[in-house]
Nucleic acid binder design. Structure first.
Lengths: 218, 218, 218, 218
DNA sequence: CATGAATGAGGTTTCATTCAT
DNA sequence: GATGAATGAAACCTCATTCAT
């Protein structure tokens, strides 16, 4: 009898279990190379069961992405709620968070990598991801830059129009890891720090002319 | 029957034609989604003919990559042969060349994008590409940085250990274009210029301490 | 649509059905010339179904071989369990059993023939077959010879070192049937009997010197 | 100019060169596994050239067989021309010749093995081979047996009706070598000698009843 | 005669998806 | 709800054969 109860409880958790399994397998092998059989096996169900909860492999992937990226979105929102202290510190925190997230959460990182690399096949997925994750992150980045300019810390620079390029180092890390894995290991944290170092020096105000430029970002 | 009359029309042209067709189809659909039939059709030959010249789909792709990336490699080699003038100018030229290449040659850009995005499935391809193209490019980038440091133009910075991150903006462009195509257009040239602007300011020597650091890059 | 109604009719039956079909088609056309389509058609399933149960054409063939040869192996094991009576009778029984098996079970015979004739392309199959079927059969043959020597019925002869040559007549039958089928029919049973007749006379002890030789088989 | 002469001479020898190459490749890989490309390469011509001289792969194989087996046929004919000495010696010579032929001429042996193993796909080849090679060989074997009986050396035995079974050891050698190659090496000469030993004892006359049987071979 | 580029039918294998139970 | 057997549409690749030159 106890078994039955457990089974029922498990049934209610099936979708979550499948999503969890999908997360792991997708992030390990990518979308195309992942077989539904693998996911089913890892979830302890059969292939058919997946179709009870998800319409197709693509829909399952989309749900996986959503499940995974929501927390990142939350973090981003929180980060910008109470801006305080030097802008460069916020910038650093932002990039290091993304970098650390990559190192610590290999599965989450895997999903992001799939979006970056296989996303072109799923415009819908990408666009949703943009709206919910990347967009806000870019907005946050833009806000940080503007915050720095406003408090007289950063010079006004054209890069403000391209906030995504402030995240280019993180994107590069994802790509590099995906391409070379252990074959050409990358010291992510130091690389990101080195990039931040350049950004910091590249944005800080040092001359009068920088100050003057402030009023007219290109 | 008329078709068959020209069967042997051009012997030396076939590989080039196939390569050309492959370039187009690959860069449009990516490696996995490309069917040899598509390439054959576009090249005006049959599937079997492809195997006369290329051992496998993967080899064909590799040849396509090589054909496409060789010129870039050549350019890189040339660029560094006679370093002269301000290092920042060389850096700008290097990045803008890569960016322009992307804009002008949408198919070549497609190939690079495939390497970045589908490369993880083909370690052999990626490694060959690294040795022949990316590696030298990174070396060139590192040399430019060192050249700038040597002539007292750049400060010694940790980024010298991660030359690939100087190309992060270009990589980001590739990824962005791949992901969003026309849906979220990117002003590539201005974005690259904005990044160069940050790099330039971020690397230039301004204080005595920068000068002192010069002798000890981390 | 009616067809589809029975889709899942027999789950445990499928492998057997496929194996049965494979047995028939393989033994008719040989390994190479057999198409999986043929087997699928005869089994009343689609090609894909075969791969639900068997990993590859080769594995399917191996399974077929095993299914077919296991009984022969069993017979051999049983035959030697309780040696009794004249050795020549055991030898006769052994060879006639193999011959009868060939005549009665044309499909099983076909499989053996494939091993003999196409086996060189599948060392793994052949070696497994050796270990499980041929090896034991040769051992049995060797044991019979030794049994005959021990009970003073057979002379010790060099052929004891080559037990497989005691089965040469059976092998020849397989080859002959495979080569000539009905075009040059062979009276298998009488041919085997004739061979046994030679073997019997060739092994029996008649002179004192044979007796003496007994202690030193070459 | 000299070149031209040579080339012309070579041209006249093309068919022979192709046959020679075919012999080598066929005997190495068997019929099915041999590609015309391989033969063409080894012969130093192109695939198309083969079709100038031979209508198809099958025809080429048939020609190869003919070229190879003719000498064996000649030997057999010679062997029986002047029967003299003990029949058992002739028998021994006959079998040892076949065995030695197998060991010495790996290519010829290869062809024979192909006939034995892949022949069932080419009834025409097999039948021609029977008429020209195997048939005469069997006739010779039968003649030897009869010669032995006639001179009071061999008993009249049923095996006379199945002369091919006197060659079973040789056939077995071919099959064994084909199946196991170096994995389970076979001491051919000693094995054949051991078989001859059994045959000799199995056929010789020792009792009065053997003598009586002489007049009525079954 | 000789070439060798081109063919194209045919093979095995994969896997997302369906559906009767 | 869950199953898992079955599907079938492709995909890549091979290679004997053809034919214009």
């Amino acid at each position: 009898m106890i078994e039955k109860v457990e089974r029922r409880r498990r049934k209610a958790e099936r979708p979550r279990e499948i999503l969890q399994a999908a997360l792991e397998v997708f992030s390990e092998h990518g979308f195309t190379a992942t077989r539904l059989d693998d996911i089913a096996n890892r979830a302890g169900v059969t292939k058919g069961t997946i179709y009870v909860y998800f319409e197709s492999k693509e829909e399952l992937f989309l749900a996986t992405v959503k499940e995974q990226t929501e927390p990142v979105f939350q973090h981003l929102a929180a980060l910008l709620e109470h801006p305080e202290g030097p802008a460069i510190e916020m910038l650093r925190r932002h990039l290091l968070f993304a970098a650390k997230h990559m190192i610590d959460d290999s599965r989450g990182c895997g999903i992001t990598r799939i979006i970056l690399t296989e996303g072109h096949r799923f415009p819908a997925v990408v666009d949703r991801w943009y709206v919910e994750v990347l967009g806000p992150a870019l907005k946050a980045m833009g806000d940080i830059l503007q915050y720095g300019v406003d408090r007289g810390e950063f010079r006004a620079a054209a890069i403000q129009n391209f906030p995504q390029f402030m995240m280019a180092p993180v994107v590069l890390c994802h790509i590099w890891q995906g391409l070379f894995e252990e074959r050409r290991p990358l010291d992510i944290m130091n690389a990101i720090e080195a990039s931040i170092d350049v950004f910091a020096k590249g944005l800080e105000i040092r001359t009068a002319s920088d100050q003057i430029d402030k009023s007219s970002p290109s």
